[in-house]
């Protein structure tokens, strides 16, 4: 069944029809062509689909797009402020070698964003908790952890 919805993604307003059974990750990728958000497991276990909805990280595979009507969503495509530029989080991941195949990276970075927005100086435990919903199939956890650590406000100064 089709429903008309409005989504605010990275500051752009999208209006259109979606199927009621479509998840947010599916609409982002298939309808809006924002393929930076990945879908791995589709059941909330891997975090590849992590997006931020009004300040909170969520699994976009676990929410129906129709349920997100009128909500503000941030995806990896909106992380950098301008096309052609990269965000500090992206730079830190590159500098620390925290990206291997890259499939988990958009999710990891969105989790990092949600974490740092809430707590600019997270403890090691807080970092681990903040990333607890994201799996890296290449198992590059140490470097990902180091990348997030290098972004702590007190480190950056």
């Amino acid at each position: 069944m089709k429903k008309e919805i409005t989504l605010n993604v990275n500051g752009n307003v999208y209006r259109g029809e979606v199927d009621t059974h479509q998840t947010l990750s599916n609409v982002l990728r298939e309808n809006l062509n924002l393929t930076g958000t990945k879908e791995g497991c589709g059941v909330g276990e891997c975090g590849a689909c992590t997006v931020i909805v009004e300040g909170r990280s969520i699994n976009s595979c676990l929410v129906l797009a129709v349920d997100m009507d009128e909500r503000e969503i941030s995806t990896i495509e909106g992380l950098a402020s301008k096309p052609g530029e990269i965000h500090d989080i992206q730079k830190a991941f590159m500098d620390q070698g925290a990206i291997q195949c890259g499939f988990c990276s958009p999710g990891m970075m969105m989790s990092t964003k949600a974490l740092l927005d809430q707590e600019p100086n997270p403890t090691d435990t807080e970092i681990k908790k903040g990333l607890s919903g994201n799996l890296c199939r290449c198992t590059g956890y140490t470097k990902i952890f180091e990348a997030v650590k290098s972004l702590k406000a007190e480190e950056v100064k």
Binding site: M1, N12, V18, T20, H21, Q22, V27, E30, V66
Partner: peptide
């Protein structure tokens, strides 16, 4: 900026349902 969505979607994995937001 306002953009319209493509309306075609992936084949659905499950039975169609109506969605109501009371």
């Amino acid at each position: 900026m306002e953009v319209s969505m493509k309306t075609d979607s992936l084949q659905k994995a499950y039975k169609d349902f109506d969605f109501i937001k009371p």
